[in-house]
Design a protein around this nucleic acid. Structure first.
Length: 561
RNA sequence: UGGCCUAUGGUGUAAUUGGUAACACAGCUGAUUUUGGUUCAGUCGUUCAAGGUUCGAGUCCUUGUAGGCCAACCA
């Protein structure tokens, strides 16, 4: 990998500074620590790219660690989906870890804390504990159980572990400072009793450790050097370090937590809870619905891993609030697909064109370039005949000079084929055009080298031969929310901004080269956009997803009028 | 009546740590084009405010202002 001149983000500055101050480069180690309680979304992609990208840059290992300490929300399905997404993004983790693998070690350390008088069993209800907690501006009060003897604490904690108590009967708390200005330091809970089966440890444990007690110690066990998380954990850092100080051995790496702002994407939400709500309420068909900002949704929509990595890289990382415009994501996928996607022709809102001077029954197979941006992409054959479909919006009976498309008496180039001229059109009783009658210039065939073929006509249209056309279902997506920041309103719920027209299913015609197109393949439908074959697709019943449209300056011109 | 964090074009980030405010997207003009795509050229526009230190401040200091986070047996 060539180390190109690039400015560093603030986290990289921190790492560089640590190295400068003597931290051994070979001890650098990172981790991506998802909780398996939902699917990964575009916001996580930033974190994945950050951590694994750092691993690549510093040639340091990166662990994939599941933060699975809450069996009430976590499931194996999510573990599998997360692994698939990280792999698909193109990253390789060093070790696959689970916080649940550290339950015994965590328990042993907790016993040590009790022995040192730094933890105690509290036997109050959660309401009582909450009431004593105080407020951000008012100190809390100490629990009546705070000064239990070490022996009693040890006995109680052991019995908690053995399952002798009901859920919620006791908790283990760290003994820190009920008057701290940091609420998290007011004797935080380390363990709760929860008789609930865990997706990996089954019924082995009736007690489960809390996030704060688990996360830093897991980093320490794995000897993670830099533990990056989102801003809302900033206040947890003090506790993270307090716990670490109580188990830390000289000579081992003491992990450093630093916080960055999560990335928000306009016109969508990046909250697992809210995404789950969309799934549960049937607003979308599932976590991988192509309208979802999940990695699996984007994948199904036709996004490439490279485009997402590039997006994450372009957005960068910092500490301030942000709302990244979706247009940047769209730019990234267009940029990538422009280089990679083969061009084909498809008509999604067809109107028939009859070329009256083209012999009935005749067909020709014309050469079409697969990708003008890729010299090695080659050519394919597309069939031409007397009757073709063009896009309904590409024809007007009359139009001004700005309309480069087909109008009565006007000429256009049919891509890869001939120049045609519209002579007449047929309409139904309601005035809708049902057929356009044209003549063609037989000498104007694309690539034939004739003088006529070199003629400049302003418009070029895509088309599909009627007798050769293959019908296909095309799913056209629009943004899921009508508001740029659906969850950014205090007085309105994000569900109020759901776009009722986010999915539009239509039937169109595609050229015959697409007959055997398989799931996941990506194409540019010329002049329309990028499309990919959905997993629902079968030969004989093709289904395409619209990934993103082409940049459309014509639409902009029309918007102005 | 607290603590912590943040403030740079419309958006997202950068600025060799005190030395010409830059890059990408978006917008706008034009050129090229058998995709109104791509490409190319150009253009618009920025340091939250007020003081201070300094030859020199986006960067340091002071005081404000605005926004975010913190009172789950969630992570």
């Amino acid at each position: 990998m060539s180390e190109k001149e690039r400015s560093l983000n603030f986290l990289e500055h921190i790492i560089e500074e640590d190295i400068r101050e003597g931290f051994p480069k070979e001890n650098l180690r990172f981790r991506f620590p998802p909780e398996p309680n939902g699917y990964l979304h575009i916001g996580h992609a930033s974190s994945i790219c950050l951590n694994f990208g750092l691993g690549l840059d510093y040639k340091a290992p990166v662990n994939l660690r599941f933060d699975d300490t809450n069996p009430e929300k976590e499931e194996q399905e999510y573990v599998d989906a997360i692994k698939k997404d990280v792999e698909w993004l193109g990253y390789e983790w060093d070790k696959e870890c689970y916080a649940s693998d550290y339950f015994q070690q965590l328990y042993d350390w907790a016993v040590e804390l009790i022995k040192k008088g730094k933890a105690y069993v509290d036997s109050q209800t959660s309401e009582e504990i909450a009431a004593q907690k105080g407020t951000p501006s008012k100190a809390g009060e100490e629990s009546p159980y705070r000064n239990r003897s070490v022996e009693e604490n040890l006995d109680l904690f052991e019995r908690m572990r053995k399952g002798e108590f009901r859920s919620g009967e006791h908790v283990l708390r760290a003994r820190i400072d009920m008057a701290s200005s940091n609420m998290l330091m007011r004797d935080p809970i380390m363990y709760r009793i929860l008789h609930r089966s865990h997706h990996r440890t089954g019924n082995d444990w009736p007690i489960y450790p809390m996030y704060d007690w688990t996360h830093g110690e897991s980093d320490y066990i794995e000897q993670v050097s830099h533990s990056f998380c989102t801003l809302e954990f900033a206040m947890h850092r003090e506790l993270y370090e307090w716990f670490l100080d109580n188990v830390y051995d000289d000579g081992r790496v003491k992990p450093k937590q630093r916080e960055f702002a999560r990335r928000n994407l306009s016109h969508t939400i990046v909250s697992k809870r809210k995404l789950l709500q969309l799934v549960k309420e049937g607003v979308v068909t599932g976590w991988d619905d192509p309208r979802m900002p999940t990695i699996s949704g984007l994948r199904r929509r036709g996004y490439t891993a490279e485009s997402i990595r590039n997006f994450a890289d372009t957005v960068g990382i910092a500490k301030r609030e942000n709302l990244v415009d979706v247009s940047l994501l769209e730019f990234c996928i267009r940029e990538d697909l422009n280089k990679k996607a083969p061009r084909v022709m498809a008509v999604l809102d067809p109107v028939k064109v009859v070329i009256t001077n083209y012999p009935e029954g005749q067909e020709e197979w014309l050469d079409a370039e697969n990708n003008p941006e890729d010299e090695n992409a080659g050519f394919r054959k597309v069939p031409f005949s007397r009757e073709i479909y063009i896009e309904r919006e590409d024809f007007r009976e009359e139009a001004n000079r700005k309309f480069f498309r087909l109008k009565l008496g006007g000429e256009v180039r049919l891509k890869n084929a001939y120049i045609i001229k519209a002579e007449d059109c047929v309409k139904d009783s309601e005035g809708n055009v049902t057929e356009i009658r044209c003549t063609y210039d037989a000498l104007s065939k694309s690539g034939s080298g004739t003088e006529e073929s070199m003629r400049k006509v302003k418009g070029t249209l895509h088309w599909v031969s009627v007798p050769h056309a293959i019908e296909a279902e095309v799913r056209i997506y629009d943004r899921l929310f009508t508001d740029a920041e659906p969850d950014g309103h205090k007085d309105k719920d994000f569900m109020e901004f759901i776009n009722p027209d986010s999915l539009n299913i239509t039937r169109g015609y595609v050229e015959p080269s697409l007959k055997e197109a398989g799931a996941g393949e990506r194409y540019q439908f010329q002049r329309l956009g990028y499309f990919c074959v959905d997993k629902d697709s079968k030969t004989g019943k093709l289904v395409f997803n619209k990934t993103v449209g082409l940049r459309d300056t014509w639409a902009k011109i029309q918007d102005k009028n």
